[in-house]
Design a binder for these strands. Structure first.
Lengths: 215, 215
DNA sequence: CGTTGGCAAACGCCCGGTCGTTTCTGTCCG
DNA sequence: CGGACAGAAACGACCGGGCGTTTGCCAACG
């Protein structure tokens, strides 16, 4: 039996351990145990615990970054189609980088070390991009949003990012169906937020912005 | 100058510390420092660190539990109005119990100690209640949901619970406006998810459920 | 025989929790 | 008025365990 370097196994084991217990509660002993070695031996492959976290988080983060670039580059499709692409891609990332993507979400915005600052920045870029995407939809009249794009963007991001608490991959097809459902919910909310439905009549006339600029 | 017991101050300080650093990274020394005493003195008021977490999380949890009861008891109003009430109440809880409510959300579903098991149970009840609320809306024809109520419920919960990453209280009025926006987004998504909009045509015909029963 | 990679043990730090001691305050007597 | 006393509350040194990290040693292998 060939004995490949255990680095990838350790990263994978760390991802699962971080997801189940959280980075702080996960121990190198338990991570090592997953690949059948003791914690001291882990250091034959790993420089530090933080390096493991970085490795876990790196791949989904890069995938998300690529999606961000794609979203910004795409100016041809309608806003709805771009949003659909966004939702589908994010669900795909959850499935493909499971559970690493969940570890990323658990820690985003809370990274301490400067080595992770790029991820926090990326997160801000991501929400800003969605925000301006929605603003574009309003500007071009594709839908009419009574509220602020900042709120809608955060609602959509929340819907997607909260998936870490309930989503498990069920194959490409089922995951795509799920993405469709989420997309329909998101897009419908945008269309309806113009005040179509009677229940919202007379409310939501926003004078002052409700989300601070810093967000 | 009267010298009240420092228990409430300590709970408040702990709430802020837990929110900013996370429970694990927060130290009794830093919590004590916030009220001007050393960590040894903290134990004049506090039995353990976990007791502090319990105290922080208790009040917002009770408020949420009350909302859950209210939601279940209310069978007179329309599903939309009940959903509106739900959204408004949750935003109010965020504002009133800031930052304690955020600490609760950070830890919900991840509590280790049996003293916190009740909260995890409550969380499950909460999402189940929303799920059956949406199912009722479909049954009575108030809206037509092509997807599964389980998905829509989780999308709404995600939208609300993710607020921990961006919401800060801005006064009763502004917060209510924000709740209205969120409600409009949620309700619109439900109405539209029946397949009203052309973009969703031909997709989202769910044959197999996409969220496992255990969720 | 050198390299690889495993193990066991130890180190050092952090932090929750304990405890003997001090300091302050207010009250009760003489 | 003033000294004795009690209780509250703060201090700060210390303990013990957990865990990241280091180190020394040894077995297997080419």
């Amino acid at each position: 039996m060939p004995r490949p370097s255990r680095w990838p196994d350790l990263v994978h084991a760390a991802g699962e351990e971080f997801r189940e217990r959280g980075y702080d509660n996960a121990t190198l002993e338990s991570i090592g145990a997953r690949v059948g070695i003791l914690k001291g031996s882990v250091y034959n492959y790993v420089g530090s615990k933080e390096e493991l976290l970085l490795a876990v988080v790196e791949q989904p983060a890069r995938a998300l970054l690529a999606e961000l670039d794609r979203l910004r580059a795409d100016t041809g499709s309608s806003v709805a189609m771009r949003l659909r692409e966004l939702v589908h891609t994010q669900v795909r990332i959850f499935a493909d980088y499971y559970p690493a993507a969940f570890v990323y979400l658990q820690h985003v915005g809370r990274f301490r070390s400067p080595a992770f600052a790029q991820f926090d920045d990326m997160d801000k870029d991501y929400i800003a991009a969605i925000e301006s995407l929605l603003a574009e939809g309003v500007r071009t009249g594709e839908f009419s949003l009574a509220g602020e794009p900042a709120v809608a963007a955060r609602a959509i991001v929340g819907m997607l990012d909260w998936m870490q608490h309930w989503f498990t991959p069920h194959g490409e097809e089922a995951d795509a169906r799920l993405a469709d459902q989420l997309f329909a919910l998101a897009l419908g909310g945008l269309h309806a937020a113009g005040g179509v439905h009677g229940v919202t009549k007379g409310i939501g006339r926003t004078a002052a912005p409700v989300v601070p600029p810093g967000g």
